[in-house]
Design a protein around this nucleic acid. Structure first.
Length: 356
DNA sequence: CGATGTGTTGAG
DNA sequence: TCAACACATCGG
């Protein structure tokens, strides 16, 4: 079953910069399952000589890139990398196979990849899918495509990230019940920590990520180096922070830019404080961010009132952002965390709502 | 047994 | 890099 071992070393980039004319496909839910062939090409011919109908051994070729016909009338999807074919699975519908190819193309060749329909870059709503693709290995994506679980996984990832409308930070906790909490107990690995410098919390509105850590944990894709990508990090309150992450040629450094200053402000970060980055060890590869006061010093975190309301049977937390003039004391970092965690509970899981 | 997807080739 | 095609192998 396992064929090519997919390595992640796709450093090469000579992307053909020819934006394809793409037709953004609608949120197709469940396409018909008819097996009739409407594609291009002929699969049946008449042998007028003998008067018998004969199956042409010639299979109908697909109009879509990366899509090949299967003997049984279905469609296969494949993509090539490093002289080798990577099989993406078989599909009933030609378009499904084409979509699978598109997804793989985006993951294997970056945002500018030539695709059948998709063009992820640009639109804000696609940030999540881009982040989703970036946070999964090629092998994982291929596996999802072959098992036809890509959309489910993507949807689930969206739930975890939390939906936000026009930058509002609202997080719907979908799987937390007291201490059996999926999220709270989710295994995560420490990636690295950085003691922030004055400039990291100053007017430059950026955090420099030490090169060694950046390249190890947040490898940038080919074309994305300059433009950067948007990464989502969840903090201990469940709030999702979205930072632009890119490489600055001028200073030869990796940085978190857009969104970072908000974090500094809300958390009241000071030079000498330590920010740490984690990632869940599960398949979702969720990123987390946390901070603590300068090691040794007892610092008080700025505690913000957390508003909560019940809506559609789900608790929704609204965490105030600006105007964080703290007016409470007595809680050090550790204590604060417990309080935050304790306030999140008693919600049934409600994932996989739109499962196919 | 039918379906899958690999081996392989030749065109671009 | 890509699809066409044959057919070995998979899996129910």
């Amino acid at each position: 079953m396992d064929a090519t071992s997919l390595d992640e070393s796709t450093t090469t980039d000579s992307a053909s910069i020819s934006p394809p004319t793409f037709t953004p496909f609608p949120p197709t839910k469940s396409p018909p399952e008819s097996l009739c062939r409407v594609g291009s090409g002929t699969s049946v011919i008449f042998d007028s000589e003998s008067g018998i109908e004969a199956e042409s051994r010639k299979l109908p070729s697909s109009k879509y890139k990366g899509v090949v016909p299967q003997p049984n009338g279905r469609w296969g999807a494949q993509i090539y990398e490093k002289h080798q074919r990577v099989w993406l699975g078989t599909f009933n519908e030609e378009e499904e196979a084409a979509k699978a190819y598109d997804i793989a193309a985006q993951r294997f060749r970056g945002r500018d990849a030539v695709t059948n329909f998709k063009q992820l870059a640009e639109a804000e709503e696609n940030d999540i899918e881009i982040a989703f693709l970036d946070s999964h290995s090629k092998a994982e994506i291929v596996d999802m495509l072959r098992k036809h679980t890509y959309n489910d996984e993507l949807e689930q990832s969206k739930r975890n990230y939390g939906l936000d409308v026009n930058g509002k930070r609202i997080k719907v906790e979908g799987g937390v019940n007291s201490f059996g909490s999926d999220r709270v107990l989710k295994a995560r690995e420490q990636l690295f920590e950085k003691t922030v410098t004055p400039s990291d919390v100053g007017k430059l509105n950026r955090l420099v990520i030490p090169k060694q850590h950046a390249e190890k944990h947040f490898p940038l894709q080919s074309g994305s180096t300059s433009k950067g990508v948007l990464l989502n990090f969840e903090d201990v309150t469940g709030k999702v922070w979205r930072f632009r992450y890119s490489y600055w040629n001028s200073s030869q450094s990796y940085v978190l830019t857009k969104g970072w200053s908000r974090f500094v402000k809300e958390k009241n970060l000071k030079a000498g404080d330590v920010v740490s980055f984690q990632r869940s060890t599960g398949p979702d590869k969720q990123l987390y961010i946390d901070w603590k006061g300068r090691t040794g010093a007892s610092v008080e975190k700025a505690v913000e009132p957390v508003q909560m309301m019940r809506l559609f049977g789900v608790n929704i937390f609204k965490i105030p952002g600006n105007g964080v003039d703290k007016m409470n004391g007595g809680c050090n970092g550790k204590r604060m965390r417990e309080m935050e965690l304790l306030s999140i509970e008693c919600i049934k899981k409600q994932r996989m709502i739109g499962a196919v």
